Structure formats: structure tokens, C-alpha cells
Amino acid sequence: MIKGRVLAINISTQKGTIKKPIEKGVFKTNHGLIGDAHAGDWHRQVSLLAYESIDKMRKMGVEGLGSGKFAENITTKGIILHELSIGTKLRIGSTIQEVTQIGKECHTGCEIATKVGKCIMPTEGIFTKIIREGVIKPGDVIEEI
């Protein structure tokens, strides 16, 4: 199946802010990334954004971009996330996640849009819920199951 890799795990304690990379993330069923502001019992527990999407912004002249700048929990490489279908199941590290949403509506006053000028999450970011909990770290394989 489709294979990609995890480039970074990112976390923040407040919604709408840039996330900071961490060494590994502990993901809990029906919750998301433990300690992250977006975690909770809802359909957008975990956010993912591809490095390839971030790179598009870089090529448009936006500087200083990297993992977590778009408030994504997981930065990926080698998998075109926004082309997956809702309901797709992904094995990432020791977790199993289900794609619940592609893109999102950007809220006003978003730190990302303010600092970066434009946010790519509304069109190319995806959201998942945790089906099987576990640990994810940079370098882990992402595969569609």
C-alpha cells in the first residue's frame, strides 16, 4: 500500500498556534496526541500535513517554514495526504488512525495565517481519529491498510 514517513511530531498547548517538534508522541484512542490543545473526543483529534505541501509554500516565496508552522501534529513525507479518502485507515508507528476530514475552514485571527501570510491546511491538511493508540516518532513508516 501507500507508504510515507513521519518527518516530525509537533505539539502545542493552545489552539491556533504554531506547534513545536517533540521526540515522540503518545497517541490515545478517542483522544489524539496527549498534551496537545486539539486533542479530545471529536473527529479532528490529529492533524497531518505533508512536507510536499509545505514545500509548495516555500516555492511561492514564503520563508521560515518547517514542521509545526501550520499547527500540524504530524509532518509527513512521501504520501499525498489530501488525495486520501475519508474513512481511509493508516498505520503510523504503532497507531492506527482513520481519516475523518480533508482540509478545514481557517478561523480568523489564526497565528499561522498572520505570521506566514497564507495557510495551506484548509486545502491540503487532513485530520484523523485514533483507532488504536500507540507511539509515533520521526522516521516511522506510514502505510494505508
Rank of each mutant, 00 (worst) to 15 (best):
R58S: 04
E83I: 05
M57F: 15
Q97H: 10
T88S: 15
L65R: 01
C119Y: 07
I102Q: 09
I112H: 04
H31C: 10
L48A: 07
C106L: 13
K118Q: 13
L33S: 11
I92M: 06
V135C: 08
S94D: 10
S67Y: 07
K28M: 10
S67A: 15
G125Y: 00
M60H: 03
I131P: 04
I74F: 06
A113R: 14
E124L: 09
R91W: 05
I130E: 04
A37K: 13
S53D: 15
L33I: 05
E63H: 12
H43Q: 13
G117R: 06
V141T: 08
E98D: 10
P122V: 01
K137D: 00
I120R: 00
V141F: 08
S94V: 11
H43E: 15
K24T: 12
I136R: 02
C106Y: 01
I18L: 13
T17R: 12
L49C: 05
V62S: 03
E52A: 07
E83R: 09
T100M: 14
S67I: 09
I54Y: 09
I79K: 08
K20L: 14
N30P: 02
M57S: 10
G68D: 02
E133Y: 03
L48G: 06
H107T: 11
G40Y: 01
S85G: 12
G103R: 03
T76Y: 04
G66E: 02
G16Q: 09
Q97L: 15
T100E: 07
Q101M: 13
M57Q: 14
